[in-house]
Write a protein that binds this DNA or RNA. Structure first.
Lengths: 286, 286
DNA sequence: ATTGACTTTGTAATTGCTATAAGGTTTAAG
DNA sequence: CTTAAACCTTATAGCAATTACAAAGTCAAT
């Protein structure tokens, strides 16, 4: 216990309140909490134990997410309603932040799953049958066939997806899981034509429009590494289906599972999963 | 579409990617994304459309909560495992932040409820019967009777609670809802003695120890405004109980519903709720 | 008187930008 | 060919809330 309750040095004040001395000096400077006494000769600051109440309040308001200026405004206005209003604002603020974090967490988990899938993926040019659950995608029709122009053009398409995407207030973190969709009729005709680029979004993602549901079911899949392998892989899938008596049930999706950041500055280096929903055709009994 | 895919000016590059030119200049400076070509005479930066891939990656990693240095490390190490490790870290990081936000939100809601209660509170020195739900408190025994020393001393007790509290990793935002507890035996003897200070915590708050459950039930309550009124109010409650044939069922809690930040720098200006669980004694039939 | 622990002020660093100023370059129109 | 608009360059400062120093002055106890 100190000798004089109204003569607490900055070091003691800092220690008993779990803040740094520098912080107290800053609060003094911005007049958020000024020491009750200052020795004019030495400039030494002396606090009163009762000023801890003010400091508690500051820390509490900070914990609610207010910044020092907002806190000062509350103190200056000396009006409880001011504080109440700030509280309401903070609540909305925090709810928004929590939602963003929720999406970010999902995006991280999605990336982790993709990496595991990458590690355990079958060899390239192997066709496998997979059960895939229902998914939701954000669809953007570029009106231009992805496969008819080179990579440079594809980049421009992606740029316009990005712009569209920001317009729809989608969180940036979904941008890791893009792809394109080749509609059933083109796939069946073995015509390489896809005009829509897509983004996979979480089941709980709320959005007004542009969201499409990809049904659950059995999919024939191939995995491949690099943009240049995509077409080859697609053709493989098409041929496999006709050779093995499958029937195409819906649109074919070309999904980028991972993009590797590390290899060089100029080429996208992506790991693809091509997937098309199928049904085995009934064999006619001869 | 630009004339030359490998000759994109900083302005165009910024526009098609939704970032500012300054940001691109910063990324150049810290070697996170350097233009594919720089005109030596003019210093003009020219980007290649394919560099958008790198920028996408940067934005994606930023969205996952990484800072620019971490992102640069990932690129520099050219190792996917580096990125995976960072992902794991980010996940833990985000989970921690989300938990903190959750507590903060609860604290805001708690404050709002307290304010509403304050506004609709009965007059001072009125005793009313209230049903109160089960609550959980963090208890800290100071070994010193709160009522035997002045406010200055009480401040020091609060400081040691605060220290203890930080030790237990409790979120700072709970510090708004403190109180003290007068054990049943002292209250019954009408002896003003409380050595424990308390903090109310949420039902879902996980903590190892120091948490006590206050049972639900009927409580006799008085509300008062200011520390100096507390003792008077307590005595009123004690007298009321003996006069109205109630039986004390548990400990008496003195809860600070709100502390007003706005009035002056030196005095805590708090709104108290005193509450003691009771049961009506059965009347003997004469 | 001297030590050691404290205090003061001032400046700079942090992070990821944004804003501004002062000046040079490109481009398209007149 | 000039000229103006629109673009680019570098350099500097600002934000928010500290933290980290350095150089110098002060306090309390031996």
């Amino acid at each position: 216990m100190e000798k004089r309750m109204d003569h607490i040095t900055i070091g003691i004040m800092a220690k008993i309140n779990g803040v740094s001395e520098q912080t107290l000096r800053l609060y003094d400077k911005i007049k958020l909490l000024q020491p009750s006494e200052i020795n004019i000769d030495t400039g030494y600051r002396y606090y009163n134990i009762k000023q801890c109440a003010q400091l508690d309040m500051i820390q509490y308001m900070k914990a609610l997410g207010m910044n020092l200026i907002q806190i000062k405004e509350c103190f200056d206005k000396k009006d409880i309603r001011e504080f109440r209003q700030k509280l309401e604002m903070q609540k909305l603020n925090i709810e928004k932040q929590m939602l963003e974090m929720h999406y970010t967490k999902q995006a991280i988990e999605r990336s982790m799953v993709s990496y595991r899938r990458y590690e355990s993926a079958p060899e390239e040019n192997t066709v496998i049958l997979e059960y895939i659950k229902e998914r939701r995608i954000f669809c953007y029709d570029t009106k231009i066939n992805c496969y008819s122009y080179g990579m440079d053009y594809y980049e421009h398409i992606l740029r316009s997806l990005k712009k569209n995407y920001v317009l729809h207030h989608l969180p940036m973190c979904y941008f890791c899981n893009v792809g394109s969709i080749m509609r059933k009729e083109y796939f069946q005709k073995k015509e390489l034509c896809a005009t829509e680029v897509i983004l996979f979004v979480e089941d709980d993602f709320l959005s007004e429009d542009g969201i499409e549901v990809i049904p659950e079911g059995m999919y024939l899949c191939t995995y491949c590494y690099g943009f240049n392998k995509e077409e080859e892989s697609l053709k493989l899938l098409m041929d496999y289906i006709s050779e093995h008596n499958y029937e195409v049930k819906g649109d074919c999706i070309s999904e980028i599972l991972i993009e590797f950041p590390t290899f060089n500055n100029y080429d996208r280096n992506a790991f693809f999963k091509l997937q098309v929903p199928v049904k085995q055709k009934k064999k006619k009994i001869i």
